[in-house]
């Protein structure tokens, strides 16, 4: 009895994305968290709203040459190039591991052609454990596919529509910030049938070592993430939330509950933690706990009251 009473005093942390109820709005950002296995020493995966996996292709991908990462002020650049073992190994190993956990599984899908994406989407559509698919059309680090679909409204609309027709799971389109007007892309994805949006993917950047006069990354350019990108991400979430009706998963440099609250206030229905896991491996969990405390302090009974509730 006591326990129930205590529980009802705590704020309601659940949110809903495309008909899927998450126990809280905190996810991991694709590419920073593997499939969660490596982070088990640091945090209880059962307490996360969702685990968003590293990108999965139809075949294994080698990724880019090294160095693949570089630190920059308040963040980092990465050009991993979507190294992954392919969907077969993913289902056998990673999904088998994740499905034992009490969290929602969102699989990030990558491809070089539309057909590549469709193949992975079809395979994962048959897996009951998969809650949603996040379509990565915004990785700045691979030459073919990926971002080519995410920077052009027509191409984005086309791939979204085709995936929507074959997917038995809700699809989240992950948007690139490397565009003139992200709202146009957000609307294009919504109109083509996207069930949700996630933003932002990394911002293309570059670092040069003045001593050696060389590019620091073998790929020359890499995606910027970390606290340095957060104001850009919050602004983009806000703009898109004004323009679309589908839910938005906000991310970009979230380090703590205050940062997460910013994204929710800007209009995100959930948030994802990425780069900061490299600084503090249990950041996502700290955000879950911190957000609950924040709601208590703000005298809110549900985290959903925060969504888009920024005051003019």
């Amino acid at each position: 009895m006591e326990k129930t009473a205590e529980k009802t005093n705590r704020p309601d942390m659940t949110v809903e994305i495309a008909g899927v109820t998450l126990q809280n709005p905190v996810m991991t950002a694709s590419g920073t968290f593997g499939s969660g296995m490596e982070y088990e020493d640091f945090l209880d995966l059962n307490r996360l709203g969702a685990v968003v996996t590293k990108g999965v292709a139809n075949h294994p991908w080698e990724g880019n040459p090294t160095p693949r990462v570089a630190e920059v002020y308040g963040g980092m650049l990465n050009a991993i190039g979507l190294q992954n073992p392919g969907v077969d190994v993913f289902i056998e190993r990673d999904l088998a591991f994740l499905k034992e956990k009490d969290t929602k599984i969102i699989v990030n899908v990558v491809g070089k052609t539309v057909e590549d994406y469709l193949e992975v989407v079809e395979r994962l559509s048959e897996e009951d454990a998969v809650a949603m698919l996040e379509i990565n059309v915004s990785c700045p680090n691979v030459k073919e596919g990926a971002i080519a679909f995410g920077q052009d409204a027509k191409a984005l609309s086309d791939i979204t529509g085709r995936i929507r027709r074959v997917s038995k799971k809700p699809i989240i389109i992950k948007l690139s910030p490397n565009v003139t007007d992200i709202v146009l892309l957000a609307k294009a994805a919504e109109d083509a049938g996207a069930d949700a949006l996630s933003m932002i993917n990394t911002i293309t950047g570059m670092k040069i070592d003045p001593e050696s006069r060389r590019f620091v990354l073998a790929n020359k350019t890499g995606g910027l993430s970390g606290p340095a990108v957060k104001p850009v991400a919050v602004r983009m979430v806000y703009q898109c939330a004004q323009a679309v009706k589908i839910p938005i998963i906000g991310m970009g440099g979230i380090a703590n509950a205050q940062d997460a609250a910013e994204f929710l206030l800007a209009g995100a229905s959930a948030v994802a933690i990425g780069c900061m896991h490299f600084h503090e491996p249990d950041t996502a969990l700290q955000v879950v706990d911190g957000l609950e405390d924040y709601l208590v302090r703000q005298k809110l009974s549900s985290v959903r009251e925060l969504i888009g509730a920024v005051r003019e």
Binding site: T32, E38, V69, I80, P85, H277, P281
Partner: peptide, 27 residues
């Protein structure tokens, strides 16, 4: 060069002669 240090981010790979156990490539 590393980012996570625990095997999640796949930044610090080296070329291997055999197919690697994690990503099934040569990294």
């Amino acid at each position: 060069r590393m980012a996570c240090g625990i095997g999640a981010c796949l930044a610090c790979v080296c070329k291997t002669t055999d197919i690697d156990a994690h990503s099934h490539v040569h990294n």
